[in-house]
Design a protein around this nucleic acid. Structure first.
Lengths: 147, 147
DNA sequence: CTTTTTGCAAAGCGTTTGCATTGAA
DNA sequence: TTCAATGCAAACGCTTTGCAAAAAG
């Protein structure tokens, strides 16, 4: 294949679908492919606009259901937001988020220390922790420099 | 005053409003009072249902605008959610959240270590951090014990 | 009195649902 | 051939807006 490099996880898409008893449709493949290369934690609508270029007849709710399905089977995450549209995250490994309160962007960062926080006894005793994330709110570089 | 104890922050409500050039209306007072004693990070609608008992004629959008105003002037926070309705938090001091993926409840906890996380250089250099929070996803005790 | 706030109604987003058709396996 | 997935349209839920009436300062 020429041009755009293939994402390693895309190669396994058929397997992933089979393991979850999902059919490998062209729409699903396209949505997953675009999600994998996205960096903006897209909403359903943002992804709809992207995939529509390739599939002019695709419907919004197919994109919506597909991305929810991806979250259910664990190949995408839903990022924390402060109300409003869901935002999807192709990175399901441990990582952390910066939320720019000015432009609304969510920026990923990785940090080993944050991946291994001690869970307080108070929490451990009353809550079965499945995942954790550190979330910073603030002002991103772009918003800080371009007034 | 008898019956229900007054929250210390409620006593200062008139001052807070004056400082922000807001009028002290009965509706605002009631919404703030109910928010202060809430423990469930209520949505606008949840708060609307509560305040409606005292003000049967209050409108949804008054509650909505009022709670957004409280967030703007810093006497309430908007909690992180995974899409959908905003949830408001009367605790504007450092604290952290547990999200039960089963019942959707958000549970507060406090932890000094988490309040003082080292901010990675990579973050510090590219982002002006205003606040931070540790968010756990998991299963709360109630959901773990009552199937 | 003046200016904000309220209540109302409608409009605006985002999401979900039911159903007939299509298509992957 | 079968059953899941898609596309469509309508319904639903949450939020926002414009405006006249009401109320706070």
């Amino acid at each position: 294949m020429q041009g755009q490099a293939k994402h390693p996880r895309l190669e396994r898409f058929a397997e992933i679908c089979k393991a979850s008893h999902l059919k490998v449709t062209p729409q699903r493949m396209a949505i997953y492919r675009e999600l994998l290369i996205s960096t903006e934690h897209p909403t359903v609508d943002a992804m709809f606009q992207i995939v529509k270029k390739e599939f002019p007849n695709i419907s919004y709710d197919t994109v919506s259901r597909t991305m929810l399905t991806f979250a259910q089977i664990g190949i995408a995450d839903i990022a924390e937001v402060y109300g409003g549209a869901k935002r999807f995250d192709p990175d399901v490994a441990d990582h952390h988020h910066l939320h720019c309160v000015s432009c609304g962007n969510i920026i990923d960062f990785h940090n080993d220390q944050y991946n291994n926080l001690d869970i307080p006894d108070e929490v451990r005793q009353n809550f079965r922790v499945l995942s954790s994330r550190v979330v910073f709110k603030g002002i991103c570089e772009k918003c800080a420099t371009t007034p």
